[in-house]
Write a protein that binds this DNA or RNA. Sequence first.
DNA 1: ATTTTATTAATGACATGTTATTCAATAACA
DNA 2: TGTTATTGAATAACATGTCATTAATAAAAT
Lengths: 160, 160
Amino acid sequence: MNSVEELRFLVLAAQREGNRILLDLLRPLGVSPSQAEVIRVLADHGPLSLVDLGALLVCETGSPSRLVDGLVAASLVERMPAVDDRRRVILSLTDAGREKEVSIREVEATLHGFIEQSLTTAEIASVNATLHKFVSGRPAGIAVAKRSATPGQRRYAPST
Amino acid sequence: MNSVEELRFLVLAAQREGNRILLDLLRPLGVSPSQAEVIRVLADHGPLSLVDLGALLVCETGSPSRLVDGLVAASLVERMPAVDDRRRVILSLTDAGREKEVSIREVEATLHGFIEQSLTTAEIASVNATLHKFVSGRPAGIAVAKRSATPGQRRYAPST
DNA sequence: ATTTTATTAATGACATGTTATTCAATAACA
DNA sequence: TGTTATTGAATAACATGTCATTAATAAAAT
């Protein structure tokens, strides 16, 4: 197997193994990795329509209707019709959603701890730079860029 | 967003975007990326039982019964009961499967060309080394290691 | 103003990824 | 040998990821 092919499968392997770890860590919270991403994006980027949410998600292309369905059913996300455009729906976290987000951040911190145990800061920065080159310009790359431009760790208490 | 979190999403983004490119390239062949992986593994690693195949796949954990189902339905893979152990099933490529494999290798070469346009050889080697550290010891990492230990490009003509 | 085009969200369809369960066949063991 | 434990494959169930289609609304064009 040449290096490029190995890269393909190592990226796939890293995604799968990371997802499985996250799956295990999130199981007690009753949310999936994709659902956790939605909750984190809604927490960080305020109320969003479905398309705007979709543009910030890495986990899925297109409009994440079904993904949001599950979160609404779990009373973690609220759907509100937009006042100025009745096609649009505005999504925001409920109180329960905001509480869930705190737990999700704790789980993510645990996962990040695991990752930092196997990789050095320099290695992480190097991989980030290279992968960024590959995905830049594509939807998932744009989503990551938009989100990494904003603070992931909340600097102030929630405005609620 | 800190570097570790960015790493998580860049790995996810790279996997998703790469998969979408492969999906498009494979569409004319009528096989999915996962099915293509099965065909490549069967071609390179000879007849295998379902569990042995599963151990070489990165795309899935557990025994890939359903994945193989589709390939058997498409007459690309053959199921044969093992003579010494009637629980086991021996999977091998049909003639059509071997022809399909040739096309799959061409598609992969195209994809690898795309990747090599955005990344240098040194970058690829560096990412590979780092991601390998992360997945080593885990099932998907073991699968990659086993497969990269064998020649991915066929050196001799098929024995058929 | 009316028609046409574009956008938003929802829905259905199909293959995947994961997990748990079931059943047959083999292995281990008393 | 007879019983129990383990293994291999198949199956079912549920949420995902992708794509196509549809209905309602808004925007653009004539």
